[in-house]
């Protein structure tokens, strides 16, 4: 499964929204109802799936599905370079 698909799959598992709602432009809070608890669960799930570390402060900055995908892709690439 591609990175983008994995990220969206995790978001679906945590938020229980319909797959068609997970567009790159979808806003996590306003469109997908991601509250502080769900944010924490998403961070944990992304860390476990991609074996990366996501500082709590970064979670707030990525407020759309697209930004989350780009962020995780960047983190995974950084990890590979190391």
């Amino acid at each position: 499964m591609l990175l983008e698909e994995k990220v969206k799959d995790i978001i679906i598992q945590v938020t229980k929204v319909r797959p068609e709602e997970i567009t790159n432009e979808a806003r996590l809070v306003q469109d997908l109802g991601v509250d502080s608890f769900a944010t924490v669960e998403l961070v944990a799930a992304f860390e476990a799936e991609f074996d990366i570390d996501i500082p709590a402060e970064d979670a707030e900055k990525n407020d759309t599905v697209g930004k989350v995908i780009n962020y995780i892709r960047q983190k995974v690439e950084e990890k590979i370079k190391k």
């Binding site: 502080s36 924490v40 669960e41 709590a56």
Partner: peptide, 16 residues
């Protein structure tokens, strides 16, 4: 730590 629904999480971090 955040303890939510029987699991531990990082939570909102030190600064928050």
């Amino acid at each position: 730590c955040w303890y939510l629904s029987q699991k531990f999480y990082k939570g909102s971090g030190l600064k928050r």
